[in-house]
């Protein structure tokens, strides 16, 4: 134990280190073995289950992106093509026009197109949509529920912990296999 780098403590230390390394490598290998049985080649993506969604509006504000990756999508086959769309118009619309005071959408993201009397088609401009769920609320409460929210994977950065999922009061957002990254509403569902 004097100042000399005496051979014995040094080799002893090396021996100990080698033992620890062996132990660690075995441990890591074992862990890898255990985990490999549970691992999956498929990664996951976050998605909203529209059946659980309570349209609280968190999706618009809790996403880590400036403009949320959650957008309203439209299941056209479920839509009634109503003239008075309760997803498009304010609850007590002043007039059935596209004027700002009548529209529910705060960003003018829904386009209303005349198809034939008395049917109108409503399409979402995703560039403008912020995922605030105001239209979803209107459509679900009074209409067919053909408007609903989905995480758009061309925008989502797939955070390890989705900030919206963390703030979702209905636990509606969960990991889905990358092979089926959307949960669309369909007729009869």
């Amino acid at each position: 134990m004097n100042g000399h780098p005496a051979g014995s403590p040094c080799s002893r230390r090396q021996f100990l280190r080698g033992g620890a390394r062996l132990l660690a490598v075995t441990g890591v290998g074992g862990l890898a073995g255990v985990l490999a049985t549970r691992a999956s080649a498929q990664t996951t993506r976050w998605q909203i289950d529209p059946a659980k969604c309570v349209r609280c509006g968190n999706c618009a504000t809790k996403c880590v992106l400036k403009q949320s990756a959650v957008k309203c999508v439209h299941a056209f086959a479920m839509c009634g093509y109503c003239q008075l769309c309760t997803g498009y118009f304010e609850p007590e619309p002043n007039a059935l026009t596209t004027a700002a005071e009548n529209q529910l959408c705060p960003t003018n993201a829904i386009k209303r197109t005349y198809i034939e009397d008395p049917y109108y088609e409503y399409t979402i401009d995703e560039e403008l949509c912020i995922g605030c769920a105001k239209c979803v609320e209107g459509c679900s409460r009074f209409g067919n529920g053909s408007l609903f929210l989905q995480i758009r994977h061309d925008r989502c950065v797939n955070c390890n912990e989705c900030a919206i999922a963390r703030n979702c009061p209905a636990d509606a957002i969960s990991r889905t296999p990358v092979g089926h990254p959307y949960r669309l509403k369909t007729e009869g569902h």
């Binding site: 002043n94 004027a99 700002a100 005071e101 705060p106 960003t107 003018n108």
Partner: peptide, 13 residues
């Protein structure tokens, strides 16, 4: 009021 809403809406957007 309508006109005011339209102006504000456009400006905010």
């Amino acid at each position: 009021v309508k006109a005011r809403i339209r102006v504000l809406d456009l400006r905010f957007r």
